[in-house]
């Protein structure tokens, strides 16, 4: 089930990044961490991840902007990873925005245990990209 899928974790909170990274690596994924939006975009082009765990609250260019850029900018049209938008709190408008701008899912970190996140990533990979962005991107 887990090929060498590449996952880019865009997260400025080091501990979360460390935890997710360890967990995902432990499960055979190739993981990179980007601490801010700029680095995230760079990594998208360089690392070419299959999945991005994109936190909304990141410094520099924020998560939504990164999402928009990836989905809409011509520079990124060749790389269209699966994007899971994450945030610390449940906010409907973030969810709406994520859906609107082409994310594939939305996760509230606090609600999700590590194991559950793993499952979600697997599911995401399994589902693959849908052509039309889903209205409700929240998955639990």
């Amino acid at each position: 089930m887990t090929g060498s899928k590449k996952i880019l974790i865009v997260e400025d909170y080091a501990d979360i990044a460390t935890i997710y990274s360890f967990m995902l690596k432990k499960n055979g994924y190739d993981v990179q961490i980007a601490k801010d939006g700029k680095e995230a975009l760079k990594q998208v082009l360089e690392f070419k991840p299959d999945v991005i765990l994109l936190d909304i609250m990141i410094p520099d260019i924020d998560g939504i902007k990164v999402l928009k850029t990836i989905r809409n900018s011509p520079d990124y049209k060749d790389v269209q990873p699966l994007i899971l938008v994450t945030s610390n709190v449940l906010q409907q408008d973030i969810s709406d925005q994520a859906a609107l701008y082409g994310a594939d899912g939305y996760v509230v970190k606090a609600k999700v245990e590590n194991q559950e996140l793993l499952t979600i990533v697997e599911e995401l990979i399994k589902k693959g990209r849908q052509d039309t962005p889903r209205k409700s991107g929240e998955e639990t």
Binding site: Y13, D15, I16, I19, Y20, F22, M23, N88, K109, A110, E113, N114, Q115
Partner: peptide
């Protein structure tokens, strides 16, 4: 408050 807590539980979980 939740943030470090999340980290703590995350680490413990790991």
């Amino acid at each position: 408050l939740r943030t470090p807590l999340t980290a703590i539980s995350g680490y413990l979980n790991l």
